[in-house]
Design a protein around this nucleic acid. Structure first.
Ligand SMILES: [Zn+2]
Ligand SMILES: [Zn+2]
Ligand SMILES: [Zn+2]
Ligand SMILES: [Zn+2]
Lengths: 136, 136
DNA sequence: CGCAATCTTGTAATAAGATAACGTCACATC
DNA sequence: GATGTGACGTTATCTTATTACAAGATTGCG
């Protein structure tokens, strides 16, 4: 049922609103920031946001950044979920860059296999300074 | 001052207590779980735990698991901070395995360099099932 | 010693993030 | 029409983390 990426038209009203907030944003947003932005559209409670986010993450349209407790729209529509995704997060400007890399994916798989660990999900988040912010 | 790993004797009373709680634990502990465990020793407020944890993390004696909002004692005293650390977290039994790998470290560095990203800290957390828990 | 600078601690209050529990509504299926 | 399912709304509650302020302890001089 959710084996393929969903198109925007499959989304419910609340999911569309949350997706819009994330898409229009430069960087990641916390659930409560999204809530505040959508109060004018009838959002009143955190659960409305969290429920939409759960689905969007499930659909692969949104990623959760664990080290920020925040969410970001997928900038890489090709990311098929078969490769691990790494995020480069600038601690100065907050910009997030999403990359997937075969070598990384393979190495993590190998390490997991070596330990007989059944890998289900990987979180890779790199913190530092983006190119622009190093100049300053 | 904190450029080298601190010995246990360098720790303050609160730091020692928090470190002890983590060392005695099988798996990661949340700050509030630690607080509860240390109430008999005079702990009354979250900040006492968080302040100790901040220092212990700074000293490299404790790692924070971002995807769990929890903390774990370093099981790998050799981890010098020059390599990235990856955690394999079993979603069934909660056991955490800490590994550092040169290939992984080099690949992440290369990806960061490629993007002109000044890497400061990496978070790698693998979720899945450990060997024992796959049997069940 | 006397004093300042710094570190550590204690406490209360509050902010930020996430979920539980309950009921309702719309829609598809039989 | 009965039934099941999924989205929605609302309230309350829980977990995680920080801010603000004050009091002791420690160190390093002069
Ligand atoms: Zn993506
Ligand atoms: Zn930047
Ligand atoms: Zn370690
Ligand atoms: Zn296990």
């Amino acid at each position: 049922m959710n084996e393929h990426v969903h198109a925007a038209t499959d989304l419910t009203k609340n999911q569309t609103l949350v997706m819009g907030a994330l898409t229009n944003s430069d960087g990641p947003l916390s659930a409560y920031t999204i809530l505040d932005q959508l109060r004018d559209h009838g959002f009143r409670a955190p659960l409305q946001v969290y429920r939409a986010l759960d689905k969007l993450v499930e659909f692969g349209l949104v990623h959760r950044l664990e080290s920020l407790n925040a969410f970001v729209a997928c900038r890489h529509p090709g990311c098929d979920g078969h490769q691990t995704i790494a995020f480069m997060i600038c601690e100065s400007c907050g910009q997030v860059n999403e990359i997937s890399d075969g070598i990384l994916t393979k190495r993590l798989k190998a390490l997991a296999d070596e330990a007989s660990f059944a890998l289900k999900k990987t979180t890779i988040e790199l913190r530092g300074l983006c190119r622009s912010c190093q100049a300053a």
